[in-house]
Design a protein around this nucleic acid. Structure first.
Length: 298
DNA sequence: TTGCAGGGGTCAA
DNA sequence: TTGACCCCTGCA
C-alpha cells in the first residue's frame, strides 16, 4: 500500500509508514504545540487526537502508529502530522543565519501538527498566564468531564469535548477542572463557537491581521492565543506567535535589546515570510529547552 | 516544610 | 499602559 508517497504496511492493528524523515516524537510532542500527548516507558507517545487514541513510535525512518488503519492514515493522520510537507526544505529555508541553523539542528524533528480547531482554541485560552504542566492537567480534566470515553490498551481516555458540551456547561461545574478564571472564557467562547463556527478556509485566505482579529472576538483570546490557534491548528503558517520565550530569544540573540512585539513580528515577516510559524517553533523549542534569557542561562 | 515568585496572557480601567 | 487574576508548580 502506498499513500502520499509513503509505503505503508498494516498488521495487527498497527501501521508502519516507511521513509519518514524529520519526525522526532520528542520534538513534536514536547515543543509546546499540543497538550494531550504523553511519553511511555518505551519512548513512544500515546495521545488523544481527532477523537481517537493512538500510540506513535519512531524507529529509524519507520513511523509506527498503533491502533490505526491505512484508511485512517489516509483520512486523518497524514494531514494531522503534516506528512505531505517537505520538512527538509522548510528546515533549509528557515536556516537563514547561525542562530536559526542551531535552533533547527536542535529541534530537527519538529513538525507542526494540524490539530482540531476548537480544541486548539480552547487549549490556548487555558494556556494564558499558565504553566505547561498545569495546562495539560486542566485540558485533561475538561476532557474527562465533558468528552467522549475511549478505551485503548486497557486504559480509559477521553476525547476533547465537542463545542456544544462546553457551551452547555455550568460555570460552577466547569470550575472543577481547576482552570480558575479562564473557565468563564471557555464557556463563553464555546457558546459563540457553537452558535457560529469559524470558516477555516476563509481564515486561511484573508489578510493575516484580519484572521487574528476575527479570532480575538472570542473571550480570553488576545493576539498571542489567536496566533497559536491559527498556527497549531495548521490553518496558516505565516504566523509568528510572540510569547515570553520567543521575545526573550529574539531580544537576546537578534535585537540585543528590548523589542516590541510589533518589531519582532516585522522582523519575522521579512525574514521568514510564509514559513514564519516553523521558524518560531524551532526558536521556541530551542529557547525553552536551553532556558535562553532566563536567570539559569545568564 | 514553608513561603513566594512566576507561569506559551487577557481584560478592564 | 498597568494591575489584577485562579491556581499551581518549581525552587530556595
Amino acid at each position: 500500500m502506498n499513500y502520499g508517497g509513503y509505503d505503508i504496511i498494516e498488521k495487527r492493528g498497527s501501521i508502519i509508514i516507511k521513509g519518514v524523515v524529520r519526525f522526532d516524537p520528542v520534538h513534536i510532542f514536547e515543543c509546546g504545540q499540543c497538550f494531550r500527548w504523553n511519553r511511555e516507558n518505551d519512548g513512544s507517545y500515546t495521545g488523544v487526537a481527532m477523537g481517537r487514541v493512538i500510540n506513535v513510535l519512531k524507529d529509524g525512518q519507520c513511523l509506527v502508529i498503533r491502533n490505526a488503519t491505512v484508511e485512517e492514515f489516509a483520512e486523518i493522520w497524514f494531514d494531522y502530522f503534516d506528512l505531505g510537507r517537505d520538512y527538509n526544505l522548510v528546515a533549509k529555508s528557515v536556516s537563514t543565519d547561525e542562530i536559526m541553523k542551531k535552533a533547527v539542528e536542535f529541534g530537527h524533528g519538529i513538525r507542526i501538527l494540524r490539530q482540531e480547531f476548537f480544541e486548539t482554541l480552547i487549549s490556548f485560552i487555558i494556556s494564558s498566564n499558565n504553566s505547561i504542566s498545569r495546562i495539560k492537567k486542566i485540558v485533561e480534566n475538561l476532557s474527562g468531564m465533558y468528552g467522549r470515553k475511549i478505551s485503548f490498551n486497557g486504559r480509559t481516555y477521553y476525547a476533547f469535548p465537542e463545542p456544544a458540551m462546553l457551551a452547555d456547561a455550568r460555570i460552577e461545574e466547569i470550575c472543577r477542572c481547576r482552570g480558575g478564571y479562564r473557565c468563564g472564557y471557555v464557556i463563553e467562547t464555546s457558546r459563540m463557537f457553537a452558535a457560529e463556527p469559524v470558516d477555516r478556509s476563509e481564515l486561511a485566505s484573508i489578510d493575516v491581521h484580519m484572521a487574528k482579529n476575527s479570532l480575538m472576538k472570542y473571550r480570553g483570546v488576545g493576539e498571542k492565543v489567536a496566533e497559536c490557534t491559527l498556527l497549531y491548528s495548521g490553518t496558516r503558517h505565516d504566523i509568528f506567535p510572540t510569547d515570553v520565550w520567543v521575545k526573550r530569544v529574539m531580544e537576546e540573540l537578534y535585537f540585543k535589546r528590548e523589542a516590541s512585539s510589533t518589531e519582532i513580528h516585522g522582523f519575522a515577516a521579512s525574514r521568514f515570510g510564509l514559513l514564519s510559524g516553523f521558524a518560531q517553533q524551532y526558536l521556541f523549542y530551542y529557547a525553552r529547552e536551553k532556558k535562553i534569557g532566563t536567570q539559569n542561562n545568564r
